[in-house]
Amino acid sequence: MREQILKAIELNGKRTVEDLALMLGNPESEIAAEISEMEKERIICGYHTLINWDKTGVEKVTALIEVKVTPQRGQGFDKIAERIYNFKEVKAVYLMSGGFDLTVIIEGATMKEVALFVAQKLAPLESVLSTATHFVLKKYKDFGVVLDEPVKDERMAVTP
């Protein structure tokens, strides 16, 4: 049942327990209990809203930074990852395979702000060997959702 609940709310965090109970065919009490259990276990880590900021007046810049680091003895990459992800500007940190070690995604109000963060906070960290900053120019699709106008139902209204 967990997997079914997660699938049903993955793209719509607003689904009510009542709707989920109907859709999945389980009692509301069971669904509610399962959800709160998953929240406690940090399987469900939050209910966010996917916003297309480009359509608002708010200025936002996103950058993807490739970071090469020296892993620390006994702690691997985790310690340095923690040093980085605790900055509130950092939206995501992933450990990568391949040509660099960490992907760091940063959001700032302006390009300058992001550049300063990299220069003043990220690059000087002792374990950081190098950084390469890539600015996002346009988001087409995020979290599995195409950030464009919703598609109209073009099917004929009544068909046999």
């Binding site: 598609v151 139902d153 099917r155 004929m156 209204a157 009544v158 068909t159 046999p160």
Partner: peptide, 27 residues
């Protein structure tokens, strides 16, 4: 076909919600 007549009325109506479609809503 008994459906035809309905089809014409529904198409005229702007904010009608249709449960009349016999095909998937997925692309």
């Amino acid at each position: 076909s008994g459906i035809r007549k309905f089809f014409d009325i529904v198409t005229e109506m702007k904010d009608a919600i249709s449960l009349g479609v016999g095909e998937p809503d997925f692309d």
